[in-house]
Amino acid sequence: MEWLRLAFTLCLFGNSFAEQSGHDRFGQYEHPNFNTITVMKQIRLGKFAWDDCGAGADVAHLSNLTIFPDPVQIPGNLYVAASGATTEIINGPLQVNLTVNKEASGRWIRIPCLDGFGSCVYPDVCFLLSQLIPPGEDCPQPLTTYNLPCHCPFKKGNYTFPETPFYLPYIELPTWLTNGMYRIQALLTFKQVEVACIRIAFSLKSS
């Protein structure tokens, strides 16, 4: 689940997470059953849809992703549950190629990579994770509770992220992230070999 959360964070909030420190890098853990992702503008996300766009030979597949309520009001509560599996050990360098498209006049327009936001390539997620959470440190909650990893390599097996609540406060959006429908694809590769592929679609309305 860690790579799913990273993909979601990258596509919406770009590199802002890299400026955080300590165990708050992945959110301020205020209560055993409540996490806080640090964000800053009132928005509404809805019409969620997802699919596993990976090939049959991919070593990682997402079998379930649930995000509710739909729409999500920000600031407000968000509940996330996910599950997936890997058929082999996944190690770095693990590249993420993020593609962000926005619907405009019935057409899908690719959003370019601007200052770490949009359709960007992240050469090594394993390195990013080691920078965010130095090796030897405990993984942040709720990953520790669910015995989920936060560093590479990711072991072969099944991964489950049970339904978990997060509180999302205000978020400051990049200028291109205006009202409309969006589709985001995260393609993970290891030495140019596809590892996993996930697509997410949603609508956005800010105020």
Rank of each mutant, 00 (worst) to 15 (best):
N77E: 08
N77C: 03
Y79H: 10
V80Q: 04
V80Y: 07
V80A: 06
A82R: 11
A82Q: 02
S83Q: 11
G84C: 03
G84R: 06
A85F: 07
T86F: 04
T86H: 03
E88W: 00
E88T: 13
I89F: 13
I90Y: 09
I90A: 09
N91W: 11
N91C: 03
N91D: 15
L94S: 10
Q95V: 09
Q95G: 02
V96P: 00
V96Q: 09
N97Q: 07
L98I: 11
T99K: 10
K102H: 14
E103K: 15
E103I: 07
E103C: 10
E103V: 10
A104V: 14
I109L: 15
I109A: 01
I111F: 04
I111E: 07
P112A: 05
C113R: 03
L114A: 06
L114H: 04
L114F: 08
D115S: 09
G116T: 06
G116W: 05
F117E: 01
F117D: 02
G118H: 04
V121R: 04
V121A: 05
V121P: 00
P123H: 05
D124K: 08
D124H: 06
C126N: 06
C126S: 06
F127E: 11
F127I: 03
L128D: 15
L128E: 14
L129A: 15
L129V: 12
S130E: 15
S130P: 00
S130R: 13
S130G: 11
S130H: 13
L132A: 14
P134Y: 06
P134T: 00
P135T: 09
P135R: 14
G136C: 12
E137P: 01
D138F: 03
D138G: 10
C139E: 09
C139M: 12
C139H: 12
P140G: 08
P140D: 09
P140M: 04
P142M: 08
T144Y: 02
T144I: 11
T144W: 00
T144M: 08
T145R: 14
Y146S: 00
N147W: 00
N147G: 05
N147D: 11
N147L: 07
N147E: 10
L148A: 06
P149S: 12
C150A: 09
C150W: 00
C150N: 01
H151A: 10
C152V: 06
P153N: 10
P153H: 11
K155D: 13
K156P: 00
G157T: 10
